[in-house]
Amino acid sequence: MNILGFAKAFAQDEEGLTVVEYVIGAALLVLALVGVFAALRDGLTESLSDTLTNLPTTLDG
């Protein structure tokens, strides 16, 4: 197979495009999760701190 034929077959192959779409989708999901956790950070930190402060010091109660 010559180089021109290989380049033409590579350009017509749609499987690579699907992989790129999944990578872009995953990146967008990660960005969305980072945004959500960044927005909720203070509230989650305060809630966890309050929970840990109010736990009994021993398991016996």
Rank of each mutant, 00 (worst) to 15 (best):
M1F: 12
M1P: 00
M1C: 10
N2G: 04
N2C: 06
N2I: 10
I3K: 13
I3T: 07
I3S: 12
L4M: 02
G5F: 14
G5E: 15
F6C: 06
F6A: 11
F6P: 00
F6G: 00
A7Y: 12
A7Q: 14
A7G: 06
K8C: 02
A9W: 11
A9P: 02
F10N: 07
A11M: 12
A11H: 08
A11N: 06
Q12I: 11
Q12F: 08
Q12V: 10
Q12W: 09
D13Q: 13
E14V: 01
E14A: 00
E14Q: 07
E15P: 00
E15I: 01
E15A: 07
E15Y: 08
E15C: 02
G16Y: 03
G16L: 04
G16N: 11
L17Y: 06
T18P: 00
T18C: 02
T18Y: 04
T18E: 10
V19H: 01
V20C: 02
E21H: 04
Y22T: 04
V23L: 12
V23P: 01
V23R: 06
V23A: 13
I24D: 08
I24Q: 10
I24Y: 05
I24N: 06
G25H: 13
G25W: 11
G25R: 15
G25S: 14
A27V: 03
A27T: 03
A27K: 10
L28I: 07
L28Y: 04
L28W: 05
L29A: 03
L29E: 03
L29S: 04
V30M: 06
L31N: 07
A32L: 14
A32N: 03
A32E: 05
L33P: 02
L33Q: 08
L33F: 13
L33E: 13
V34P: 01
V34E: 07
V34R: 08
G35K: 09
G35D: 07
V36S: 03
V36E: 04
V36I: 14
F37T: 03
F37K: 10
F37A: 06
A38Y: 11
A39K: 05
L40F: 09
L40N: 11
L40Y: 11
L40R: 13
R41T: 01
R41W: 04
R41L: 02
R41S: 05
D42T: 04
D42A: 05
G43A: 15
G43K: 15
G43D: 14
L44D: 09
L44C: 06
L44F: 11
T45S: 11
T45R: 15
E46N: 00
S47F: 13
S47A: 15
L48D: 01
L48A: 11
L48M: 13
L48K: 14
S49H: 10
S49C: 07
S49L: 11
S49N: 07
D50T: 00
D50Q: 09
T51F: 14
T51H: 12
L52S: 07
L52F: 13
L52I: 14
L52G: 01
T53M: 12
T53Y: 11
L55K: 02
P56A: 12
P56Q: 15
P56M: 14
P56F: 15
T57N: 09
T57M: 13
T57F: 11
T57A: 13
T57L: 14
T58A: 09
T58V: 11
L59V: 10
L59A: 02
D60P: 00
D60S: 06
D60F: 10
D60N: 03
G61C: 10
